[in-house]
């Protein structure tokens, strides 16, 4: 059952026809040819498909495109400003915070959103003081907040410092 929707992806508006069954991830990758967000598990169990959906990080594999008509979507490709990479992207490169690169766009989108959440004072399950006004992003906090993004090459020990550096600046 096809339906027409519009999506704003990385600042550009797209009108497309989707099967009601089409997930946001498949709409991006198969209908629009925007392949920055990756399909790793298709069930919200790996985080490779993470995008900003109306400003918040979300698994694009678990949301239906039709239910998100008109949504604003940002992928890792949209974080860069033309040739100018986002500071998080530059930090991932300099810390070698990836190997195969497949989980990387999801990690980076997730990390950017995570800093905003921390900025807003959102706690995590490892926060010592749940009611603290300010979140101190130490190793444990970053690792917990990034645990929805699996990395099988296991670059975690570089991902955490890469994010910490951006958090400090």
């Amino acid at each position: 059952m096809d339906q027409e929707i519009t999506l704003r992806v990385d600042g550009k508006e797209h009108t497309l026809t989707v099967d009601t069954r089409t997930t946001l991830l498949d709409a991006l990758r198969e209908r629009l040819g925007i392949t920055s967000a990756k399909k790793g598990c298709d069930h919200g169990q790996c985080g490779a498909c993470t995008v900003l959906l109306d400003g918040r990080r979300a698994n694009s594999c678990l949301v239906l495109a039709v239910a998100n008509a008109g949504a604003e979507v940002v992928t890792a490709a949209g974080l860069a400003d033309g040739d100018e990479l986002h500071p998080m992207q530059r930090s991932f490169i300099s810390h070698d915070a990836f190997q195969c690169g497949y989980c990387t766009p999801g990690q980076i989108v997730s990390a950017v959103a995570m800093l905003r959440e921390a900025e807003a004072g959102w706690p995590s399950v490892v926060s010592e003081d749940l009611d603290a006004d300010e979140v101190v992003l130490d190793h444990g906090e970053i690792a917990e907040r990034m645990s929805g993004n699996l990395c099988r090459c296991a670059a975690y020990a570089n991902i955490v410092p890469a994010i910490a550096e951006v958090a400090r600046s």
Partner: peptide
């Protein structure tokens, strides 16, 4: 429970 991404949804 779950992850930040899932809890946002």
């Amino acid at each position: 429970g779950a992850s930040y991404q899932l809890r946002n949804l």
